[in-house]
């Protein structure tokens, strides 16, 4: 299970970084979202991966799952969701104002039309 989770985090993070380096806002936002998914799984895993144990101390059970990372990951999910919504709206605003969705701040005069 460790290998599965670790490679999933790695895959999400690398795909996120690749997309983040693109030139247009939509891939960049998708990349940021993927990176935040990678973070979420990572936080979830730092409480150590265990199967079938209760999240609170229970004398009948052999051990317990650390509940704190789960609380942290909830916070992180909510925040990254809100931030993604903000950047989508502002990127839309920038697209409507400037007529293209390039991320860099080049001059608009020699700008090709946005591909449909």
């Amino acid at each position: 299970m460790e290998i599965l989770v670790a490679s999933a985090i790695g895959l999400l993070a690398s795909a996120g970084i690749y997309l983040m380096l693109r030139q247009r806002t939509f891939p960049v936002i998708v990349g940021l979202t993927l990176l935040s998914y990678a973070v979420n799984v990572f936080i979830f895993a730092v409480g150590r991966l265990v199967v079938g144990l209760p999240p609170i101390l229970d004398k009948a059970a052999a051990g317990y799952t650390d509940p704190l990372p789960q609380a942290l990951v909830l916070t992180a999910i909510v925040i990254s969701f809100g931030m993604t919504a903000v950047i989508v709206i502002i990127a839309l605003g920038a697209y409507l104002e400037s007529g293209h969705d390039r991320v860099d701040m080049t001059d608009d005069t020699d700008e090709p039309e946005v591909r449909k």
Partner: peptide, 28 residues
């Protein structure tokens, strides 16, 4: 608002979102 301000805003937010992700990796 304004074109340049919005476009600079997108960069600013994207940069800080990456920063927040790194922050979470470090804290975890």
């Amino acid at each position: 608002g304004g074109k340049n301000r919005l476009r600079a805003g997108v960069q600013y937010i994207a940069f800080n979102l990456v920063g927040s992700s790194l922050f979470l990796f470090a804290l975890a």
